[in-house]
Amino acid sequence: MDPSLPHRRRGLTAINGAMALVVVLVITQVWLLSATLDSFLAGRRSAALPGAIFSGLLFLGCGALYLFILRIERQARKEEREKP
């Protein structure tokens, strides 16, 4: 990240990056859910367990990114409040 950017801009860039990643993870999860459901309906029950595990991992990833964004946002608001 360019250190010459003002702090606010850098925070926003980090949030945008994390948000884009969350979007990618959610799209992957949509695909995973539809693929697992399709194979379950086709009688291939073996796909259900790996599907649930990967979906859980993707959810954890989303949760971690959300916490990251929350932290940056709190920090920004704190700085905002401390401004004279």
Binding site: M19, V22, V26, T36, A48, G51, A52, F59, G63
Partner: peptide, 16 residues
């Protein structure tokens, strides 16, 4: 988005 992700995880658990 994170809540949507949770919803889909629950969906996968339901299939399981």
């Amino acid at each position: 988005l994170t809540l949507t992700s949770l919803g889909m995880f629950v969906g996968n658990l339901w299939i399981l």
